[in-house]
Design a binder for these strands. Structure first.
Ligand SMILES: [Zn+2]
Length: 401
DNA sequence: AGCCTTTGACCAGCG
DNA sequence: TCGCTGGTCAAAGGC
């Protein structure tokens, strides 16, 4: 019941922040799962006493600035606080605000690194400012910032034409992190309005069938209402034969994605690249269902009329794969974080992201990379503006690709 | 016919 | 050891 639709997206404009932190994760732990995929995680346990909280998620409403006062990049933003110094939160905020387009207020981005099995994974988080609605294509955000901007408005019809964006996305989106770092970028793109029949019609725009299309095909294998979360969490697996990549979704009633988490990496190419749209990732929720299938099928077939899902996705996903997983959250997270924190902590090990208060919902995207890297080849340039003891490093996006 | 979603139950980790 | 919680399984049903 629940589920909703999808949506979301955030765009990271320049304002995004990258956070690297080294937190150890335990990949080994499987938790209840059968697979022992490495799960690395990220969220932030609000409750955790962890000091590391590398990632701070700042709610859109908040201004990171407050947190950090670093003199460094403040150009657009008000101030950029350095993690070290002060409050992170604000930093994030700045981004959003100034980020540029009002339309896309990016909430924040964090990059975390955690160590798993000896490896370090980094998480990259983007938070979109959106309150309820998030722009659908996260992917784009990542790689492309402005492209989408227009659509976003309120999330409604971000993409009038998904296709176009997709294409764009492809082009620009590809984050190729060639570097040692494997990026995972998640994409949370989703259209949001679930209910709407419009989805069908509009396709991406509103559709929600797929919450996130990353170009892969996903099958829902469970849904649960997590305590602390207002919305039910949906579990998806990659349908590829040998692939065990999983995706967790939380959507609000509105259809907005509250959180998206990717686990594992795809060891296979995206299905039918040609169809980007439908390619596969289709996740649907209740309302979407019909669409979903359609999209999914479509994906396969090419029919995708709606599936538009996310065009952007295609490229982005890839990145994700490399990494462990990605998560996206929205404001709601706050509570969720707590919840998540628990398990995640376990699962992930220590990677924690500190939850910030989030009045609003923003989707958060966390990208996990395999290396410590400071460098992300995501097409953006990052400037380090702070560092924290725990290996946490904050980077600020300077120039988009 | 095949694939996917839904949903309740079960399993496992943690406090 | 028990209860809580998150994650997964698997049957049923739908498209
Ligand atoms: Zn896969």
């Amino acid at each position: 019941m629940d589920t909703a639709t999808t949506t979301n997206s955030g765009e990271p404009h320049c304002s995004s922040e990258l956070r690297l932190d080294g937190a150890p994760n335990d990949p080994n732990r499987t938790g209840s799962g059968q697979n022992s995929m490495a799960r690395y995680k990220l969220m932030s346990p609000a409750k955790l006493p962890i000091s590391r909280s590398p990632c701070i998620t700042i709610p859109p409403g908040y201004s990171p600035t407050s947190f950090l006062e670093s003199p460094v990049l403040l150009s657009n933003m008000k101030v950029e606080p350095s993690p070290t110094t002060g409050s992170l939160l604000q930093a994030l905020h700045c981004s959003m605000t100034s980020a540029g387009s009002p339309t896309f207020p990016v909430t924040s981005t964090c990059f975390n690194t955690s160590t798993v099995n000896g490896r370090k994974y980094s998480f990259f988080e983007f938070k979109p400012p959106a309150r309820n609605m998030v722009p659908a294509d996260f992917n784009n955000h990542v790689s492309e910032q402005s492209t989408q901007v227009e659509g976003q408005g309120k999330g409604q019809s971000f993409l009038s034409s998904p296709l176009n964006e997709n294409e764009k996305a492809d082009q620009s989106n590809e984050l190729s992190l060639s570097s040692p770092v494997q990026m995972v970028s998640s994409v949370a793109n989703s259209p949001v309005d679930v209910n709407s029949d419009e989805h069908n019609h509009k396709g991406n725009t509103a559709n929600g069938p797929q919450s996130s299309n990353d170009g892969y095909n996903w099958r829902k294998y469970g849904q649960k209402h997590v305590k602390g979360s207002e919305f039910p969490r949906s579990y998806y697996k990659c349908t590829h034969p040998n692939c065990e990549v999983k995706k967790l979704f939380e959507r609000s009633h509105d259809g907005q994605i509250t959180e998206i988490i990717y686990k594992g990496t795809h060891d296979h190419p995206k299905p039918q690249p040609s169809n980007r749209y439908s390619a596969g990732s289709i996740m649907s929720t209740q309302g979407e269902r019909s669409d979903n299938r359609a999209s999914s099928l479509a994906g396969r077939d090419d029919k995708v009329s709606n599936s538009p899902e996310q065009p952007t996705v295609a490229t982005n996903d890839l990145s994700l794969e490399g990494a462990g997983f990605v998560s996206t959250k929205t404001n709601d997270e706050v509570d969720d974080d707590d919840l998540f924190s628990k398990r995640r902590k376990t699962e992930l090990g220590n990677t924690d992201i500190i939850p910030v208060v989030k009045p609003i919902r923003e989707p958060r995207v966390v990208v996990q990379t395999m290396s410590e890297v400071d460098i992300l080849d995501d097409g953006y340039r990052w400037r380090k503006y702070g560092q924290k003891v725990e290996l946490l490093q904050m980077h600020k996006c300077r120039v988009p690709g």
